[in-house]
């Protein structure tokens, strides 16, 4: 869960937070493209070196490190499974090149996690929804998206309360064989479902009472406006794209850091 937790928006007032969500999304996509296009340690490290200052500027270092911790297990699996499979694949030759290759794969994963962390940690769902609105997604979908996010903590609380209430009545969730265990969840799921139905009715009532759908020309309190930083970032993004394409087409290969000598 910690991996998902670390993708939860953290409020802040930094230039990364205030970046236009569309620009920030493009930036994320450039990071994404860069890490997918190249599988050498050098370019991946360059991307990483660009990302780290962003994390620091956005003041989300703690959350980012948490997300890396969450990703650590998967990163290890990637590294180990690569080493093992290629080791057997290449006839049992353990070379530095193989280590570097596996490291790059692992590093690619970390770079990807970081780029998504930066985006989701610093982009409020409200802004995300605005971006969606600008992309001509119908408001109903947008509203559903925001409502879903809004009710995640509420439902989580409710599920916990129901679980507590039933355990107080002697329900033991992890007792018995597989079938019994599944059955044990019925007393938890039923109230949760029924409450959700009840809740959705109340929500609909409240929506009606707040003039939902009164006009098709709905206005929005927040507006997306590109400012200077956004344009600067956009320019930077375009430069990066150009650089990426150039590197991919004209640079033959990157130097290997570890060489390719055999370890044993």
């Amino acid at each position: 869960m910690s991996l998902l937790d670390s993708l939860r928006f953290t409020r802040g007032d930094t230039s990364v937070h205030n970046l236009d969500p569309r620009v920030k999304f493009m930036l994320t996509m450039v990071f994404f493209a860069a890490s997918v296009m190249f599988l050498d340690l050098v370019p991946l490290m360059i991307v990483f070196v660009v990302q780290v200052p962003l994390v620091i500027i956005a003041k989300v270092t703690g959350e980012w490190i948490k997300s890396l911790k969450g990703a650590a297990v998967i990163a290890c699996i990637i590294f180990v499974s690569n080493m093992l499979s290629f080791y057997y694949f290449q006839g049992g030759n353990l070379t530095w090149a193989l280590v570097e290759y596996s490291l790059s794969l692992t590093f690619r994963f970390i770079v990807l996690v970081t780029s998504f962390s930066i985006f989701f940690l610093t982009t409020s769902p409200d802004k995300l929804s605005l971006a969606l609105e600008k992309a001509r997604i119908p408001y109903e979908f947008n509203f559903a998206f925001i409502t879903a996010i809004r009710f995640v903590p509420v439902l989580a609380d409710e599920a916990q309360t129901i679980m507590d209430a039933q355990r107080s009545r002697g329900l033991e969730l992890d007792k018995g064989n597989f079938i019994t265990r599944v059955k044990n969840y019925i007393p938890i799921l039923l109230p949760l479902i029924i409450n959700s139905i009840r809740r959705s009715l109340e929500l609909a009532e409240a929506m009606e009472s707040r003039a939902f759908g009164a006009t098709v020309d709905r206005t929005n309190l927040y507006e997306l406006k590109m400012n200077q930083t956004d344009y600067l970032t956009l320019t930077f993004i375009l430069l990066c794209v150009a650089l990426l394409i150039y590197a991919k087409l004209y640079l033959p290969s990157f130097p290997k850091l570890l060489g390719d000598a055999a370890i044993f």
């Binding site: 409020s124 769902p125 409200d126 509203f143 925001i146 409502t147 996010i149 809004r150 509420v154 809740r199 109340e202 929500l203 409240a206 929506m207 009472s209 707040r210 003039a211 939902f212 759908g213 009164a214 006009t215 020309d217 709905r218 206005t219 929005n220 309190l221 927040y222």
Partner: peptide, 22 residues
């Protein structure tokens, strides 16, 4: 809880007004 729609306070206050196109 069942009548707060937005993620921030000011945005929730705006909800009814947005719906009316203010």
């Amino acid at each position: 809880d069942n009548q707060i729609f937005a993620l921030t306070v000011e945005k929730d206050i705006a909800f009814g007004l947005e719906n009316q196109g203010v």
